[in-house]
Amino acid sequence: MTEAAAFQTAMIEIIKVGKSYPPNVTALTDISVSIASGEIFFLIGRSGAGKTTLLKLLCNMEKPTNGLIEVAGMNIHQVTGNKLAKLRQRVGMAYQDFRLLTDRTVAENIAISMEVSYKKPQIIHNRVRNLLAQLQLEDKHDILTGDLSRGEQQRVAIARAVANSPALILVDEPTGNLDATSTEQVMELLIRCRNSGATIVIATHDEALYRHSTHRIMKLHNGRLDSLTRGDGQGRPNTAEATDDTEATDGSDDEI
């Protein structure tokens, strides 16, 4: 899919979204942004800025206090039942706390997202093998995830998020426990997913991840939108407010 074609439609529309927790904790205030189909979008900010909250709203784990969120043209917080299940099958999320089933093997954990959409066992088996090879975890196929290191668990969580070839991939702090080589593998995997048409939202405070990219970067500060810029690929953020139009990209997106 060419980037121009992919960017024609918005995958995510966030309009004046706010989120508060009782008694009076405001996690997000008036966030508005549109993320195009096939885009890689960075969400940055210090701890507590509201990155994880925004991702939770995007995958319908939580509901916004006010505002509207649309994913693939659907108001995700009004979708229920089987429609919500189908929508969630198209959204892969790698959680900051991994949410792995520690009494299941690596392969079982990755397969779970494909099993719920009734993929054939052979397809599941091949996809799991393929993902593990990409992340250099082939030898961990039958190991319980509880016995893995944090870094390995993180890669398994990412593999599970992308396994079902979702249209939207949300990744929360993907490289927090990874060395440089593993970080590179993870980013290569995510870029491959983007090249297959997936939209990717990465929440991170690891500057190395987005510093040299040409993707849009949204910075949150105390739950508010601090800046929305586009990386210039040289490590200098563009000071002008970034748009999601095709012309803004320079074709070097695949660099990390």
Partner: peptide, 16 residues
């Protein structure tokens, strides 16, 4: 509970 929550999040239907 943990597994069932996860199943819901990855898109398992209520029937599943």
């Amino acid at each position: 509970q943990e597994e069932l929550e996860l199943l819901k999040l990855v898109g398992a239907t209520n029937n599943y």
